[in-house]
């Protein structure tokens, strides 16, 4: 049962991913991105990180993917071009991606066994969401990254407004 669910979500994530990078039509590619992100969210659920799964859906699908689709629509004249979505060096790109994947497989299999049996991991504490929240606000843990993340968001917001705002015609 778990395996079936794992395979389902993996297929969603990977097929979605392949569609993202091959679809010529950008809105479709973005929809495929949503599919892929949803698959990844499913994997989080399997990994018992429910909070992250919800945040994944909320932030990635609810905000980033919609933002991307919106930007595609705003710049839509280029969406309907006839040319291929890939550039001229796509062959090399494919080769390097495949080689990279092969290398990763080698490295991963050397470090973490593939075998099915005898897999065990400590149980996730019941209040892991709470633990996450506390870790983010703990002076002995991650309060600094948490605060810096807010600085990052603020500067990104200011920056995006400055860059994208239309010319003043007061």
């Amino acid at each position: 049962m778990t395996y079936a669910v794992f395979i389902l979500f993996t297929l969603m994530a990977l097929c979605g991913g392949v569609l993202v990078v091959t679809q010529r039509n950008l809105v479709r590619a973005a929809t495929a991105l949503v599919l892929s992100l949803f698959g990844v969210a499913g994997l989080y659920v399997l990994l018992e990180a429910g909070f992250l799964a919800a945040v994944q859906v909320l932030v990635y699908i609810g905000a980033i993917a919609i933002l991307i689709i919106f930007a595609i629509m705003l710049t839509r004249r280029m969406v309907q071009g006839d040319e291929s979505g890939l550039n001229r060096q796509w062959g090399w790109a494919l080769v390097s991606a495949v080689v990279m994947f092969a290398l990763f497989c080698y490295v991963v299999v050397k470090a973490w066994p593939l075998a099915l049996g005898a897999v065990s991991a400590p149980a996730v504490p019941a209040d892991s969401t709470e633990a996450l929240g506390l870790a983010l606000l703990d002076w002995e843990q991650y309060v600094l990254p948490f605060e810096i993340a807010s600085v990052l968001l603020l500067s990104a917001m200011v920056g995006a407004v400055v860059i994208a705002r239309e010319k003043h015609d007061s």
């Binding site: 990254p145 993340a149 600085v151 990052l152 200011v158 920056g159 860059i163």
Partner: peptide, 26 residues
Amino acid sequence: TDLIMVYLSIELLSIVSYVLTGFMRE
């Protein structure tokens, strides 16, 4: 001295840098 912090501060610099590079919008 923590990968999380390393990544976050690098990205803070990067994101601000993208904006400042494109600052002369016209």
